[in-house]
Design a protein around this nucleic acid. Structure first.
Lengths: 341, 341
DNA sequence: TTGAAAGCGTTACCAA
DNA sequence: TTGGTAACGCTTTCAA
């Protein structure tokens, strides 16, 4: 392994000078700097990140901790973060928290906060206060934070506005019996649960219904756990079997929406002819589905830009104290699953 | 930040003793060890991985470098690796190489090889020799290595056998005009390309055709670049528009297969009625598709177990010199896309 | 059984 | 403008 000492020796300077030269410190005269750079290149020198991290507390790596690596939305989000980090000359490492509290804690304590200059994290079971302790003082940006009294900067998905646009779209194409899948109406009344993603999306749905003077019944909202295609599929079976008149469904996520469409198909119901379906997220999978899925696409590039921007500001130390909050852009994609002739 | 010195002080022992005690070294008497552990717990001590890594060269982190974070197959593969690592008490960090050579190099040099005890890597543009240089002497296990003269342990997806099973399945259900999408027949004759995943899967297809005494024509193999749903969809349009008699299609990946089915639907062709389609990989997305996708499912848990097993053996230093090679298990999933009444 | 001390590769302060 | 040197937090050898 070639170290800085090797480079310094090869260039005929001290370790200190080599270090300065390689990081472009203006104090080193161009000729010396060039000699050092040349030596580094010739020897294939690469800085040891552990050493750098230990000494300076910075290594150019940003951690992204997501729920599950193998779900489309978090995957696409991490990919967007990676692209954005690259534009800043940084590297992203991704870890999955598997949605268990111990796992989240272990990841934050053991890895993300140790190996990284900062992290982007989508909390689910850990409170803000616990997070603060686990962050080890490192900057952190939260995604869809539900804390009433935030400690960290955060970026939200456009839950309220997006959901409102989705339901309004269903109403616009003529739906009069709308179901919302993946949300529990009771949550709205519960202080601890009303900030959840599902509650915020439910709220947006309510806004749209109210604006259109449509009746609101608690049983329009169907809880679902977990949020995966299989449960969604079973849920669709139940809806179909109930014989209930439904002409439009808004699902909390695209993954749910695809499961619902599949479940309706199992019962001989066709989308959009018998029922229109719209999702939320904008995962790429929806474009190729039969029928292609209408959705509220969260602008992941915008989300990544905002999150990374906030994080870098904190890392660079030029951010004032109070937590900043932002919301990502979105776009309504009206595709086949809500197409009416 | 609480360090080992703090713990040692709190427990009334030296740093060395604290270090031994925390890692369960039998030399420390139980009473002392318990005192140290208690102090560590009380102070919320967490070992600094950079320091540990710098000093001992080990930190319990394994790197997984994949092509793209937002494609289903690599995502599911990384998730399987994470689960497997967890069972060994290790952490996985995932990075995307974005399929560019510079990016692969930069990731290997800058991060994966630095922050990890070892890595699992799916090479695409970097030669084995370059890899050896970039690995920094750290153990590495390759996935689907194409090198004729391997330097590292590797695990393959079951290309030849899996593809053979796929095409045999098409033949079994009565297909007589089969197309293979995503492979270039010319590659088989090219030494440098005949080890590619696509070539090995093509080879398996040929075996199945030969065994069934079916004719083999170069134009049964349709190249596709890149391997994504959009190109596959366009490819299906071309197939449909050509008016060519086709009753079965084997696609190099599930992602391609889904794009093909969608493309056929665009032209009014129904799967499986007009044409049967089978993919390769077994991504979860296929189960909910309409029609559900028949596929060769690579057993990712098996793949992860094999890859992680090989890697840990190298990390622990109890592995002899010559590279070991293994192949993951697979399973034929016959679903709706190849269902014949 | 425990402690002192060296050293991993880097950075950053201070002196020259 | 450059070099010497002391950390960063940990592990590990060597002594006690």
């Amino acid at each position: 392994m070639v170290t800085m000492s090797d480079v310094a020796k090869a260039a005929g300077v001290s370790r200190a000078t080599a270090s300065y030269a390689l990081r472009g410190d203006p104090r080193i005269v161009p000729a010396t700097a060039a000699r050092v750079r040349e030596a580094a290149k010739r020897l294939h020198y690469t800085a040891n990140l552990s050493a750098r991290s230990l000494r300076s507390g910075r290594n150019g790596v940003v951690g992204v901790a997501i729920f599950e690596l193998d779900r489309p939305y978090p995957s696409e989000m991490s990919a967007a973060m990676s692209r954005e980090a690259e534009r800043h000359g940084l590297q992203v490492i991704v870890q999955q928290t598997s949605n268990s509290k111990e796992s989240e804690i272990s990841i934050l304590r053991k890895v993300t906060s140790q190996l990284c200059d900062g992290m982007i994290f989508s909390p689910s079971n850990v409170s803000d206060e616990e997070l603060r302790a686990l962050s080890g003082g490192k900057p952190m940006v939260l995604l869809d934070d539900v804390s009433p009294d935030p400690v960290f900067d955060s970026v939200d998905t456009p839950c309220v506005e997006g959901a409102k646009a989705a339901v309004r779209h269903l109403i616009d194409i003529g739906c009069r019996h709308i179901l919302v899948v993946g949300a529990d109406f009771e949550d709205l009344a519960d202080d601890r649960k009303s900030a959840k993603v599902s509650s915020r999306r439910m709220l947006g749905s309510l806004h749209a219904l109210e604006e259109a003077d449509m009746p609101i019944e608690p049983d329009m909202f169907i809880p679902l756990a977990p949020w995966d295609p299989e449960s969604a599929r079973r849920c669709a079976h139940a809806i179909a079997d109930s014989g209930r008149p439904v002409d439009g469904v808004f699902c909390m996520t695209d993954t749910i929406a695809l499961g619902v469409i599949r479940g309706l198909a199992d019962r001989g119901l066709r989308v959009p002819d018998d029922m229109a379906v719209i999702g939320f997220d904008g995962i790429s999978e929806g474009a190729c589905f039969i029928p292609s899925l209408s959705t509220i696409r969260t602008d992941l590039d915008d989300l990544a830009r905002k999150a990374m921007g906030l994080l870098l500001k904190r890392i660079d130390g030029d951010a004032d104290g109070s937590p900043v909050h932002m919301t990502a852009d979105y776009e309504l994609l009206a595709r086949e699953s809500t197409r009416r002739r």
